[in-house]
């Protein structure tokens, strides 16, 4: 099966502020927002990208849409290698790949009516004016907005749930094949959120979209994505089917993350988290494992050598020295049993 999205050796660094000594010495310190990330997404697959704030998940999403340029590595989406795109080929890519923004209250221009906001991508893509009404009608139906009176309204006249449907409609109006959704429900109330999540699930199926769903919330990722990538301080630390990642996390960070999620019921474990005291700081990641300062199982090797993301079982990859290459042999024998 050919991957629709193929990312290899992707890194992105950002300059950080310098002290006077660094200025005088001509040093340009950087923070690694994304660090040698490799993954693929099959056509029509939805993958969750899970991590805490500052882990590089949003930067990864922006790199995938060529909203920022990578420092190293390559991205191929469909038949397009992003680095080489410009002019007409870039415009074609912009039609095929869309971003769904986090905050619907910020994503739409407050001074223009909803109808005009929806038409803008059509104008930019050069879609003939006579097709606009039909395209708008189709997309509103897709996001379950009834009637057209809403097109004349302004964002402040609408609820968060309605606005997020409009934001989704705006991303879908050019009929993209690939979507990056960055925390699309984090600003919404619980009772409304479920409706947007259900809608996203339906649209993935009915439109055959390839999608990446960025979130800090594992329960939400699980709801929309069968496969999950876990990021920590710029690195991918785990990759696997979402249910397996939840029920049998392999990376010590994933284990702590899952243990920390409170459940909506009285009976739940309140045991201390499997973590050593320490704070995540992207600027202080050395050459070893990024999680070494908080990992309860850290060994000497973890300080000096960064564990690569390796396959440890069918469909599962993990970057941890505790999961050595040995199970790799088992992966081959597991594969038939798993399928």
């Amino acid at each position: 099966m050919d991957a629709y999205v193929h990312v290899s050796g992707l890194s992105k660094t950002f300059p950080v502020s310098r002290d006077i000594g660094q200025v005088l010495r001509g040093e340009r310190p950087v923070v690694h927002a994304v660090r040698s990330v490799d993954f693929s997404i099959a056509p029509g697959e939805t993958v969750g990208l899970l991590g805490e704030s500052g882990c590089g998940k949003t930067t990864t999403g922006r790199l995938l849409l060529k909203l920022v340029e990578p420092t190293e590595g390559s991205i191929r989406i469909g038949d397009k290698v992003l680095a080489g795109l410009s002019g007409e080929s870039l415009r074609g890519f912009r039609r095929d790949a869309q971003f769904v923004f986090q905050n619907p209250f910020d994503a739409l221009n407050p001074r223009i009516a909803i109808g005009r906001s929806l038409a803008e991508p059509l104008i930019n893509a050069g879609i003939p004016r006579e097709e606009h009404a039909e395209r708008t009608r189709v997309v509103l139906e897709r996001v379950r907005i009834r009637g057209t009176e809403l097109l004349e309204r302004y964002p402040h006249e609408m609820s968060g749930g309605q606005l997020q449907r409009v934001v989704l409609a705006r991303a879908l109006i050019l009929e993209p094949r690939f979507i990056v959704a960055d925390e699309p429900v984090s600003m919404l109330d619980v009772s409304v959120r479920a409706g947007i999540l259900n809608l996203m699930r339906e649209l993935q199926d009915s439109l055959g979209l390839t999608a990446i769903y960025i979130s800090h919330d594992l329960a939400l990722v699980r709801y929309v994505a069968r496969r999950t990538l876990v990021m920590y301080l710029g690195s991918l630390v785990e990759d696997g089917p979402t249910e397996d990642v939840i029920h049998e996390p392999l990376h010590p960070y994933t284990k702590a993350l899952i243990a920390a999620v409170p459940l909506p019921r009285v009976t739940q474990t309140r045991d201390p988290l499997p973590l050593r005291p320490g704070t995540p700081d992207a600027r202080k990641v050395g050459k070893g494992c990024p999680f070494v300062n908080r990992c309860p199982a850290a060994m000497a090797v973890c300080e000096i050598e960064r564990p690569p993301l390796v396959a440890v079982a069918a469909g599962r990859r993990v970057a941890c020295h505790l999961m050595p290459a040995a199970p790799l042999r088992a992966a081959g024998s597991l594969a038939p049993a798993a399928s």
Binding site: V190, S191, V192, R193, A194, G195, L197, N198, L218, A219, L220, R222, Y223, I246, I258, V261, L263, P264, R265, V266, Q268
Partner: peptide, 30 residues
Amino acid sequence: LEAPRHPYTMGLTNAFPDLERAGGTLAPIA
């Protein structure tokens, strides 16, 4: 949480994902 008496509370608990409960569909409150 276990025996809600008000339909709004019932709806709210339904709309909430539970990491330990398998699959299922979340029900939004219209």
